[in-house]
Amino acid sequence: MPNTLNPLELIARRWQPSAAFVRRAALATVVMAVIIVVTGGAVRLSQSGLGCSTWPKCTPDSLTPTAAMGINGLIEFGNRMLTDVLCVVIGVFIIAARARSPRRRSLTRLGWAQFWLVMSNAVIGGITVLTGLNPYIVSAHFLAATGLLTVAVLTWKRAGEGDEEPHALVARPVRQLAWLLVAAAGALTVIGTVVTGAGPHAGDARKVHRIAVDWQEITQLHVDFVYIVIGLTVALWFTLRAVAAPAAPRRRVLELLGCLAAQGVVGYVQYFTGLPEFVIGVHMLGSALVWICVLRVAMSLRDRGALPEGEPGVPAPAGEHEATGSQMAGASSR
């Protein structure tokens, strides 16, 4: 029985995107992941978390918001619709990565990993609404969005490098320091979700259950971890200089320091101005950018060689079917 070509294979036979297009498509997934984080924060900060009273519909009788729901319904529903835009962007990347010759399975698998993360987070978002903005589910919703951002950044990095075995650019203790920085930044993000779950911006004007911790104390712990992240970043900078590391890792650390400085200014502004919604939104954007910078620092400490040479006009081999959801688990930082 002859092999049946799936749609992605048919596209690959007729279209050969450039390596630059694939990288731009990967970057677009990063941008959309950041937008999802920020707009999700806007839903909470505008008290629109229950703008749509149920899920997957907006109301029990309507898929879309009604006039009676006002601006809150539009904001919540608009954020839901952004998931569709995100899926389109990820789909473009998957198609481009699949059509590119030579074929790189690691990229398409990472693209499918993003898709399934979006689907799972959509379900978590629905549970968030159905549970009346349970703060623990809200935290899980944000962390899942951060997971999507992590995979998107990894995909962007992989789209710009080759497939050789990773070659370390610095000694193991230096790499361990970098991964300690990643762990501290991850803990900072998790503690930030607890601050959100205990803080004054619950996501809806009605009384919403909050995490039962002292908000000021958990905020102080969050600040303490900010200083830990800054200290580790400075230590990594001096270490890279001491071992004469390549310019790229040192440049990435400087980028992180600049982002941390800007985020620190925003943090103090929101504290001394009584937590205005707009400034908190900027702070959420800053947290996403800090996480991106931290990941780029860690990934800059190894090299995988140059991109494989493309062969214009040469289609991908027939009979090689695309990765499916069951193959998503194979996505890695190879």
Rank of each mutant, 00 (worst) to 15 (best):
P246I: 10
G325Y: 07
A247I: 11
A242I: 01
V223D: 00
A140D: 02
C87E: 01
A247K: 12
T64S: 08
V194F: 15
P60A: 13
P56Q: 04
S101D: 02
A67W: 05
M81C: 08
Y271N: 04
F272W: 07
G281F: 02
I191P: 01
Q176V: 10
H201R: 09
I75G: 12
L232S: 04
Q16N: 15
V269C: 01
A99P: 07
Q270Y: 08
S139I: 07
T39V: 13
T54L: 03
A316R: 13
L254R: 12
V282C: 12
L63W: 15
L143V: 15
S139V: 03
L232P: 05
G274R: 01
Q220P: 02
K207H: 02
N6S: 14
A198W: 00
F93H: 11
L63D: 10
I127D: 11
Q47S: 15
V282F: 10
V43Q: 09
D214S: 15
R210S: 06
R302W: 05
I94E: 01
A144E: 02
V30F: 01
E277F: 07
P166C: 00
F21E: 03
V265T: 12
V265M: 09
L307C: 10
A42L: 14
L254E: 03
H283P: 13
R334T: 08
G310E: 14
G78E: 04
A99H: 04
S300H: 08
G186W: 08
L307K: 09
P308M: 05
P60V: 12
L130W: 07
V243L: 08
A298R: 11
I230K: 00
A140C: 09
L307I: 13
N134P: 10
G264E: 11
E309C: 02
V282Q: 09
V269M: 10
L180D: 09
S300F: 08
M284A: 07
T239W: 03
G274N: 04
A316C: 03
S46H: 05
E320W: 12
V208E: 05
V282L: 15
R210G: 05
